[in-house]
Design a protein around this nucleic acid. Structure first.
Length: 285
DNA sequence: TCCTCCCTGTTC
DNA sequence: GAACAGGGAGGA
């Protein structure tokens, strides 16, 4: 399940495959995989991919009209936004590659020398979406408008301010309005590293605890990015490679196994509707 | 603020 | 053949 470190890795590995290439066509194989606010994907044709970056868990490909293309009469997208959700993958393939059972979108991509390849958006569970957008359309997307700050750029004061409210601290970490990019894996890992119980009310955290939690969150995200993310089941980067951070999990997926810090068996519960693993000794209530 | 639904492959 | 995995929308 791609969270911030996995999406960061996808963007980094995808960039050399797509930057400077012109979109020769788009084939959408599942209507619901297109965001309802998206411009028609036919308008991608002729646009050049000029940038690849990440915001939260979103992949953002910057688009620009070809230098020698005529002035268009239609509004053209300046951004292709991809939300991988649970099982989405962006896979560079040859021009001859054909759609698999879970292929949702195929883009044709031509290099400046004319060599054509394809970019596949495959998504087994079909939760992911693509969105051909303009800044104006993004502004209409509530999720985008209200997306919280990047955790790696967040200060302690900023983090503290965003933790208002009485709900469980884990629920706050998972809320993309509070911070962008955190999912179930990194919420559990950061809470364990900081020694904070996932069900503790965000409001009752001391300033020291909040500071420790933000530091732990940044550390776990940076460590995972350095290891190209975590591969649980479906996640692969754009080169088809798995990450290595799953080998460093302290709690995620380790219920019943001994805590790496104290040896007590890890416990499992549900917080905010999500499976949650924690150590009752290292993360007391 | 919490619960259900969407979706499909894997595990029990 | 049911339970489970889970991000986010939408409803209670």
């Amino acid at each position: 399940m791609p969270e911030l470190p996995e999406v960061e890795t996808v963007v980094r590995t995808l960039a050399p495959h797509v930057l400077g290439r012109r979109i020769t066509g788009a084939t959408l194989l599942r209507r619901q995989s297109l965001h309802p606010l998206s411009l028609p994907l036919e308008r991608l044709r002729g646009l050049v991919i000029t940038g690849a970056r990440r915001r939260g868990k979103l992949v953002l490909l910057a688009l620009a009209p070809d230098a020698d293309s005529e002035r268009p009469s239609l509004i053209l997208p300046s951004l292709l936004v991809v939300h991988l959700r649970m099982t989405g993958r962006l896979l560079p393939r040859s021009a001859e590659a054909e759609a698999g059972p879970h292929t949702r979108l195929i883009l044709g991509l031509a290099a400046p020398d004319g060599e054509v390849r394809r970019l596949f958006f495959d998504d087994t569970r079909a939760f992911g979406q693509v969105f051909a957008a303009t800044p104006g359309l993004l502004g209409q997307w509530r999720f985008w408008r209200e997306l919280g700050p990047e955790p790696l750029e967040l200060t302690r004061a900023g983090f503290s301010r965003r933790l208002a409210g009485r709900r469980a601290i884990k629920a706050a970490l998972l809320d993309q309005h509070v911070i962008a990019g955190i999912g179930n894996i990194y919420a559990d890992e950061a809470l364990h590293a900081a020694g904070i119980n996932p069900k503790q009310s965000a409001q009752t955290l001391t300033a020291e605890q909040r500071g420790r939690l933000l530091d732990a969150l940044k550390a776990v995200l940076r460590l995972s990015i350095a290891q190209c993310g975590s591969s649980i089941r479906d996640y692969r980067d754009a080169d088809g490679n798995v990450g290595a951070f799953q080998n460093s999990f302290a709690v995620y997926g380790r219920a019943g196994l001994p805590c790496r810090a104290c040896g007590r068996p890890l416990e499992k519960c549900r917080v905010a509707g999500r499976a949650t693993v924690f150590c009752s000794r290292c993360q007391p209530v």
